[in-house]
Design a protein around this nucleic acid. Structure first.
Lengths: 165, 165
DNA sequence: TTTGAAATAAATGCTAG
DNA sequence: CTAGCATTTATTTCAAA
């Protein structure tokens, strides 16, 4: 009688059980699924399901639910990865450059990395000319940037993600 | 009287007007915003708003609405970019490796690129050991892979995205 | 934590402009 | 393409277990 939680896979506080993982998987697939549909899919009452979703949001596991857009349909059919290497690495300057890269038009993701490069910038642009302009006007001219190297992206695919299973 | 569409910024068929862009921006910010809230925010009737959203979905601009999860909260606090270089580039073999990379546990995004590398793999893993195991067991041992180079990711930031403005 | 049922709120379908 | 209204659905709340 003491083990009323045999469905759960973890005992640690704040741990996610199978229901939580099922909810997350469903919302990754369709973030606008109704609470009723979600509840039916994971096998709990609607009120329980709403409670779980709120808890997942508040705990930070579920950070947001947002729209995914097709950059090509928005006039940016060309993707590139721009590797950025810095000449100096003072903390404040690195942060300031980071802030600027994130705000560039067409910037999709910016990775701050260790190793051969400092930043990897994934951008979507309207044309090769726009890519050249972006690099020449906003990146290589920046005083901290020592070198850039641009790779054309043929295709981007989402992986299976961080969920276990 | 003929110009009843003066609010629109483009005339081309399938082009997006300001209302469409406002809807997209709102749904990127909060993909679960109710249709009523969305309509109020962009300044159209609810029925019109629902119609627009459906049209944006059907035209492929709005590809999906989905949950974003925190890999760290799911037990994968360490991020890396793994650059993969191939020894041979036969079409079918490249595709088959691509398929496998996407399915690796913790794979977030896989970029197929031209230039110095062939693939850039963004992964989230539980530990440095898990990263080593992933690379040694699933990547470097693959017959097509000539070389890999791994960079630790300090931080990832979303850019402003593909929306104009 | 979970649940069902009532009250509130929202989405959809229909009509028409 | 847009809007208003009625119908159908969904979400929230809450007492209870």
């Amino acid at each position: 009688m003491a083990d009323q939680q045999s469905k759960k896979t973890q005992a640690a506080p704040g741990a996610l059980d199978g229901t939580d993982l099922a909810i997350l998987a469903a919302l990754v697939e369709d973030g606008r699924m109704t609470n009723a549909a979600l509840a039916a899919r994971v096998g709990v009452a609607e009120s329980t399901c709403a409670y779980r979703v709120r808890a997942l949001r508040e705990s930070g596991v579920l950070t947001s639910i947002s729209a995914r857009l097709d950059p090509g349909a928005l006039g940016r059919p060309i993707h590139a990865i721009i590797k950025v290497r810095l000449g100096s690495h003072s903390r404040d300057h690195v942060r300031s450059l980071y802030d600027r890269l994130v705000e560039l038009p067409g910037a999709l993701t910016v990775f701050h990395v260790g190793g051969a490069d400092d930043f990897l910038l994934h951008v979507a642009v309207a044309s090769p000319q726009a890519l050249r302009d972006l690099i020449l006007e906003h990146i290589t001219t920046h005083p901290m940037v020592r070198q850039t190297e641009t790779q054309l992206v043929f295709e981007v695919r989402e992986g299976r993600g961080a969920l276990p299973g």
